[in-house]
Amino acid sequence: MTSYAYFFGCVIPNRYPGVEYAVRWVCGKEGYDMDVKDVPDFSCCPVPGIFYSTDKETWLLLATRNLVLAQDERREILTVCNGCLTSLMKASEYLKDPKSMGKVNRVLAQVGKKYTGVPKKSEGKRKVFEPVSVRHYIEVMANDIGLEAIAAKAKRPLKNIKVAVHYGCHYLRPTESRTIDDPNNPVLLDKIVEACGATSVDYEDKLDCCGAGGGVRSHVVDLANSLTQDKCRNISDVGADCIVTGCPFCLLQFDNAQKSFSKDGIPVMHVSQFQALSMGIDPISLGFDTHHVSAHSLLRKLRGA
């Protein structure tokens, strides 16, 4: 069985605690009882739109610090956010180059840390190391837990619920070093939603950006919201009951932006919250009161009222 380390990042613990609760619940005793542990010394990944954008050297130092913590625990990093995924995965790629690794380690020595990768086996006296593995919640659920296991635990009937899934850019791209899913025709999130018993509806420009990434939300919020408005128009055209995404930053963008152009809005949640709902959790534990767009319309439909 694979051992994982939770990597919640910044947005989930500080803005959407319900997502953290849902992830712990699904991965814990109530759910799949996975071997997953907290590493309290993890910091921000660091956020690519800020650090990777302005100083790659600093970005790599801070990201490697996090990777070392997982390496020392011999665990795979379980990210719940596309930003954390792309930042840590890219760092793990950079460190395959011995020159980069050496340069980073010279600085990390100042804080008593060293990145080697995870020792896998010994060939004579020589140890073989593998890069620290960085995984995404969606992919772990689909591949390690499996769609059948997800379907087996789906107790709450969700057949009438129409879901618009949003993958988020950094789950799909860039593909220079990895592919989790087909970047032009991704399927895993749709399959999870279907395994939960709901219907994933297709909509126009499904793979478009939510608008928040790369600092756009922080820098020109009108521009970000305008992109979100286009997505929401396409989503409401197909009559979806809710939006399900694997990224808390996309979640935050959909959740906040909808205030600027619509009165009610379409409820939006993280895939872990949706999964927990299908497994029969009491919705009160999912922290929907911290969401700006009320989830009432969806919950009413769930109760069949």
Partner: peptide
Amino acid sequence: WVCATCYRCYEHCPADINPAEVM
């Protein structure tokens, strides 16, 4: 500061420039 770093340009660049990385 308006690039969302969605990397679509990278996927479609025949010259392998990766415009997002240029930004």
